[in-house]
Design a protein around this nucleic acid. Structure first.
Length: 186
DNA sequence: CTCTGGATTGAC
DNA sequence: TCAATCCAGAGG
């Protein structure tokens, strides 16, 4: 795990196929990571680019720290911090292929379609029931964990530009599993 | 304190 | 194509 989180670009690709697991009082919710985006140190599109603030403080923590932020007045998005402590790098988890707790997620998301359950960063947090309170926790000692999942070979990874950002729009730092029906979009 | 805009989503 | 909805961050 340590090597996977060595750097945001390495992690964004390397985390594809990993199983993201969330232990809740109602049961285990999990899914395979199928889509990610890297936010680098000094990246104009990253929340960390302007330095430490109360919101982005977790981004400067040790690799494996969870960073959750609230946006557009209604959505949470979840990241896993990578790289060295104090570098401010992270990987945005954009989509999962549902594995455990599918019924719970359908209730959380108010939809029956398994394909629209977690095919976007805001939907991911809604499906799992994640909010800001998890920001700053760590995958090694919190309710949110990573486990080995699918094997994904380099030739099955598609690279593209990131979605929804205004700055650094040309950086090819979004990655997803080729032909996977659970990604947010092609 | 006020103002602006956003790593989104779902409805039209 | 666009409104919903509210907080972080910047500026006064």
């Amino acid at each position: 795990m340590k090597t996977v989180l060595k750097d945001a670009l390495v992690a964004a690709k390397g985390l594809l196929g990993y199983k993201l697991v969330y232990e809740t009082p109602d049961g285990r919710i999990s899914g395979y990571i199928v889509e990610t985006e890297a936010y680098m140190q000094g990246d104009p599109a990253s929340h960390s680019t302007k330095g430490r603030t109360s919101r982005t403080e977790p981004m400067f923590g040790t690799p494996g720290t969870i960073y959750v932020y609230f946006t557009y007045g209604m959505h949470y998005c979840m990241n896993i911090v990578t790289g060295e402590k104090d570098h401010g790098q992270a990987v945005l988890i954009r989509a999962l292929q549902p594995v455990d707790g599918i019924e719970i997620m359908k209730l959380n998301r108010k939809t029956q379609s398994e394909f629209k359950l977690i095919n976007g960063p805001g939907k991911l947090c809604q499906a799992l029931g994640i909010d800001k309170s998890l920001s700053g926790s760590h995958i090694d000692n919190g309710p949110l964990k990573l486990e080995k999942g699918l094997e994904v070979v380099e030739s099955n990874i598609v690279t593209s530009t990131r979605i929804g950002i205004r700055r650094a729009v040309d950086m090819p730092w979004r990655f997803y599993i080729k032909d996977n029906p659970y990604v947010s979009r092609l």
